[in-house]
C-alpha cells in the first residue's frame, strides 16, 4: 500500500481526516476489525461443528460421505484463483490502469459465479436426495469405500438383520441415526449457506465497483474502495479454506 502511494492518482479526503495516510489507515484498520467480527460470526458455527463432530464421530463421518468432495475441491480452486485475480485487480487499480482493473475484476466475478454454479449443482443434488433438514429429510447411507465401519443396518457380516426385529407399531429405528445425519446436514447447509451469502455479497460489491469504474464515478478514483473489497474477498476465500476440510474431508474415527 505504501509503495503504491507514490504513483497513485489523487485521493479524496473526507472531512474528518487530517491527511490521506490517516484516512487510508482508518479504512484498513476498520476493515480488519470488521473481518474480526466476521471471524467470530463463523467461529461460533465452527465451534458447534467441532462439538457435534466429537459427540457423533461415526454419524458425521457417515453423513459427510454423501457430499461431493471433488466438487468441493473444484470450488476451492475456483476461489483461490479468484483471490489471485482480485489481488491483480487491486494492483492494477493502484497503478491507475482502469481497464486492466476491469479485466481482473471481471475474472474475479466470473469465478464467483462459477463457485455459485458448482454450489448450485451440489445443492440441487442434495435437495433431490432430501438431504435438506426438515420433515422430508431422508438419508440412505452410502457404503464407505472399502470399509465396514458404517453404522448402517445392512452391514456387518454374520449379524442378524435388525430391521426384521419385532418392533412396536410405528417405531422406526432408523429415525435416530437420521437425526444425527440431519444434524450434520443442518450445520452443512447453515455454514455453506452463510458462506454462499458472503460470496453473493462479494459479487454485489465487486460488481458495483466494476460498474463505478466503468462509468468513472469519483468514488472509485482511488484504489482504497477496491482494496477494502479485496480484503473482504480474501476473507470469503479463507473461510472456505477452513470450511472445506472441516466439512468435506471428515476423517474416519
Amino acid at each position: 500500500m505504501s509503495s503504491a502511494q507514490l504513483e497513485v492518482a489523487p485521493q479524496r479526503l473526507a472531512h474528518q481526516f487530517e491527511d490521506i495516510d490517516q484516512q487510508n489507515e482508518c479504512y484498513i484498520v476498520g476493515m480488519w476489525t470488521f473481518l474480526v467480527t466476521e471471524i467470530m460470526f463463523f467461529g461460533a458455527l465452527f465451534l458447534a461443528l467441532t462439538v457435534y463432530r466429537s459427540v457423533y464421530p461415526n454419524s458425521f463421518f457417515e453423513a459427510h460421505l454423501a457430499l461431493n468432495k471433488w466438487l468441493g475441491l473444484l470450488n476451492t480452486f475456483i476461489l483461490l484463483t479468484s483471490s489471485f485475480f482480485v489481488a491483480m485487480g487491486v494492483r492494477a487499480k493502484m497503478l491507475g490502469q482502469n481497464s486492466a482493473t476491469q479485466f481482473w475484476l471481471g475474472l474475479t466475478i466470473l469465478c464467483a459465479f462459477g463457485f455459485l454454479g458448482v454450489k448450485y449443482v451440489e445443492y440441487s443434488a442434495e435437495f433431490r436426495e432430501h438431504h435438506f433438514p426438515g420433515p422430508n429429510f431422508h438419508f440412505v447411507a452410502t457404503q464407505p469405500p472399502g470399509g465396514d465401519l458404517s453404522a448402517n443396518s445392512q452391514v456387518a457380516s454374520g449379524q442378524p438383520n435388525i430391521s426384521s426385529r419385532d418392533f412396536p407399531a410405528g417405531y422406526h429405528p432408523q429415525q435416530l441415526e437420521l437425526h444425527k445425519r440431519q444434524l450434520f446436514f443442518s450445520l452443512y447447509f447453515v455454514m455453506t449457506g452463510l458462506h454462499g451469502l458472503h460470496v453473493i455479497i462479494g459479487i454485489l460489491v465487486l460488481g458495483s465497483i466494476w460498474f463505478l469504474i466503468r462509468y468513472k464515478h469519483p468514488s472509485v478514483d482511488d484504489y482504497m474502495t477496491l482494496e477494502l473489497a479485496g480484503l473482504y474477498w480474501h476473507f470469503v476465500d479463507i473461510v472456505w479454506i477452513f470450511l472445506y476440510p472441516l466439512v468435506y474431508l471428515i476423517g474416519r474415527q
Binding site: 457435534y52 435438506f132 433438514p133 437425526h179
Partner: peptide, 13 residues
C-alpha cells in the same frame, strides 16, 4: 426450516 442444531430431540445440545 426445521434444521436441527440445538434440539435435543435429534441429538442436539
Amino acid at each position: 426450516f426445521g434444521v436441527c442444531i440445538f434440539n435435543p430431540a435429534c441429538g442436539g445440545d
